[in-house]
């Protein structure tokens, strides 16, 4: 068995909906059926075979070769297996995924890991806005699993996050962890805007500090907490390396405009 591979024939001139190209769906289909799966988003009605050169047969190991920022919804709702993208990907990568492993070598668009329930997403490049966040109108963002972005993240990473862990090695855009309900978000670099706006609970570690905090975050002093050490150890197991080691950090509590039980840790 060799990896089921979707090699992009050329840069697509429309958004491509890859939500059907997941292990769960493809494991029961033959190659001719896979070729006929609709992936286009315009009235042209493009099918997988129009957009991709398809080879291989192991649906538990799916590859996208030659990425594009127009390849949307890769790994959506996948619950098992692995998907690897050797290039960029578009919006909603790994949305509402519940298991399995998803890796993108390049950068991805908005709503990566949106509503993630389980499994693991790794992005080597940057990601767009609302990493792990809810789609329009949804009441919860990520509720489980892990996301790691090696580059920078866009605005409002971890919006309405409820559980799970996000690790961003680079900087993050405005207002990370907005409306956070619970879970853990770690930023290796600098957090722009005012992180944690309207967060109820949850934990934020901002190793490069933040541009500012709203007045409804209150300084709770420097803490040398065992929990930080345990957290660092635990995360190292998941991610390998993490940008903090559990040494003493300054704690901010907020957002007191709402429940106010969120914790933000900054270098002491």
């Amino acid at each position: 068995m060799s990896a089921l591979t979707f090699r992009l024939k050329g840069e697509p001139d429309e958004r491509i909906d890859c939500s059907s190209l997941v292990p769960d769906r493809l494991k029961s289909l033959g190659s001719s059926e896979i070729e006929k799966l609709p992936v286009g988003t315009t009235k042209r009605g493009l099918v997988a075979g129009d957009v991709f050169e398809i080879s291989g047969d192991d649906a538990a190991d799916i590859r996208f070769e030659g990425g594009s920022s127009r390849l949307d919804r890769i790994g959506e709702r996948m619950s098992e297996g692995a998907i690897r993208v050797s290039g960029d990907a578009g919006f909603r990568v790994g949305r509402v995924m519940s298991g399995g492993d998803l890796q993108v070598e390049g950068s991805v668009g908005d709503l990566c890991g949106s509503g993630l329930e389980g499994g693991c997403i790794r992005v080597k490049g940057d990601c767009g806005a609302k990493l792990g966040g809810p789609d329009a109108g949804e009441m919860k963002g990520m509720s489980g699993g892990t996301i790691r972005v090696h580059g920078n993240a866009g605005e409002r990473a971890g919006d309405r996050m409820r559980r799970g862990t996000i690790l961003i090695d680079g900087d993050c855009g405005k207002d990370a962890a907005s409306r956070m309900i619970a879970g853990t978000l770690i930023v290796g670099g600098h957090a722009r805007g005012a992180p944690g706006r309207l967060m109820k609970r949850g934990t934020l570690l901002l190793m490069g500090g933040a541009e500012r905090f709203t007045p409804t975050f209150v300084d709770a002093g420097v803490h040398d907490l065992l929990i930080l050490k345990l957290m660092a150890d635990g995360l190292r197991e998941t991610f390998g390396d993490v940008p903090f080691d559990g040494s003493a950090m300054r704690k901010m509590s907020g957002d007191t405009a709402v429940l106010g039980l969120g914790e933000v840790y900054l270098p002491a």
């Binding site: 939500s19 909603r92 949305r95 509402v96 709503l111 949106s114 329009a136 109108g137 949804e138």
Partner: peptide
């Protein structure tokens, strides 16, 4: 308006 996530053809909802 309040409930876009329930629309049949909501873009990210199969």
């Amino acid at each position: 308006l309040l409930l876009p996530e329930w629309h049949r053809a909501f873009s990210a909802r199969p």
